[in-house]
């Protein structure tokens, strides 16, 4: 009898532990489905596209809460820069540009958001090449929902234009290539 009661109590305790917790609004960035790319003019005639292959981070996306509840942190491994050209990538990793030995990670940490659950402007500090400067990224929700593997996902895209010189990377690539556009395609799985 005592055994039974104990057993029931244990089962009950187990159940209450496994009961679905209140849904979090915290997401972990899915590195395999997130991309940070840049686009810069090549001598004014075309575009050069590059990607950072290794990124990580997390974000909070809470469509119930107000704009101040939304936030994101992204970390970028600068040495993972890839423009499909071995020697160019070597140059981009060198002290002329990213100086990856000294500044191995670039980060974006949001400080505020204006907009709604579909899109808006995310402001924050971009630390790149040892320089931290506020930037404002125009973002748009791409979608959210259950994935086929039992998780819940949300995805966003954002763009921002930065001037290389502002981040201490003024190496002369010609007048058309002073600034560059950054594209962020960020997908996260809900924790």
């Amino acid at each position: 009898m005592i055994k039974r009661i104990l057993g029931a109590a244990l089962v009950a305790a187990g159940l209450s532990l496994s009961a679905p917790a209140a849904q979090t609004a915290d997401y972990t960035i899915d590195a395999g489905h997130s991309f940070v790319q840049f686009k810069i003019s090549h001598v004014g005639v075309s575009w050069m596209i590059g990607t950072f292959e290794r990124i990580s981070g997390s974000f909070t996306f809470d469509s119930e809460a107000g704009p101040e509840a939304q936030s994101i942190t992204v970390e970028i491994d600068t040495a993972s820069v890839d423009t499909n050209h071995a020697e160019r990538d070597k140059h981009l990793r060198s002290a002329d540009f990213l100086n990856v030995d000294e500044f191995p990670t670039a980060t974006f940490v949001s400080t505020g958001y204006e907009g709604d659950a579909e899109g808006g402007v995310m402001t924050g500090d971009l630390s790149l090449h040892g320089v931290t400067k506020p930037i404002a990224i125009a973002i748009k929700k791409v979608g959210e929902g259950k994935d086929p593997w039992g998780g819940y996902r949300a995805g966003f895209e954002g763009t921002v234009t930065i001037t290389r010189k502002d981040f201490g990377m003024g190496y002369n690539l010609g007048p058309a290539s002073e600034s560059m556009e950054l594209f962020l395609f960020i997908e996260g799985t809900r924790n």
Binding site: D82, N84, H85, A86, E87, D89, K90
Partner: peptide
């Protein structure tokens, strides 16, 4: 090895 590291 440097120059061919990205397949070119």
């Amino acid at each position: 090895l440097i120059s061919t590291s990205e397949g070119a």
